[in-house]
Simulated assay, not measured.
Amino acid sequence: MLSDACSQQLEELAELLLQLSPEDYSGISPVFKSSSIGQHVRHILEFFECLISQYDQGEINYDLRRRDLRLEADPYFALEKIRELQTINHIPDKELKILQDHFPNSQPVKTSFYRELLYNLEHCVHHQALIRLACLSIPHVRISENFGVARSTLTFISKKAEN
Rank of each mutant, 00 (worst) to 15 (best):
P75W: 02
F77Y: 00
F77G: 00
L79Y: 04
E80Q: 07
I82A: 02
E84V: 14
E84N: 08
L85C: 07
L85K: 08
Q86T: 06
T87K: 14
T87A: 10
I88K: 11
I88F: 06
N89G: 15
H90A: 15
H90W: 12
I91P: 01
I91A: 02
P92T: 01
D93I: 02
K94W: 01
E95K: 12
E95P: 01
L96C: 06
L96E: 07
I98E: 00
L99P: 00
L99C: 11
D101T: 08
D101I: 06
H102N: 14
F103N: 10
F103A: 12
P104T: 08
P104F: 03
P104A: 08
N105K: 13
N105I: 11
N105S: 10
S106D: 08
S106G: 12
Q107W: 05
Q107L: 08
Q107N: 12
P108I: 03
P108K: 06
V109T: 10
T111G: 08
S112M: 04
S112L: 05
F113E: 11
Y114A: 01
Y114Q: 03
R115Q: 05
R115A: 02
E116Y: 00
L117A: 08
L118T: 09
L118G: 00
Y119L: 06
N120V: 11
N120D: 07
L121C: 10
L121N: 05
E122H: 15
E122A: 09
H123V: 02
C124Q: 08
C124V: 13
C124G: 01
V125M: 12
V125T: 14
V125F: 12
H126F: 12
H126K: 15
H127T: 07
Q128K: 13
Q128D: 09
I131V: 05
I131T: 02
L133M: 14
L133D: 13
L133A: 15
A134Y: 03
C135V: 09
C135E: 04
C135G: 06
L136D: 14
H140C: 05
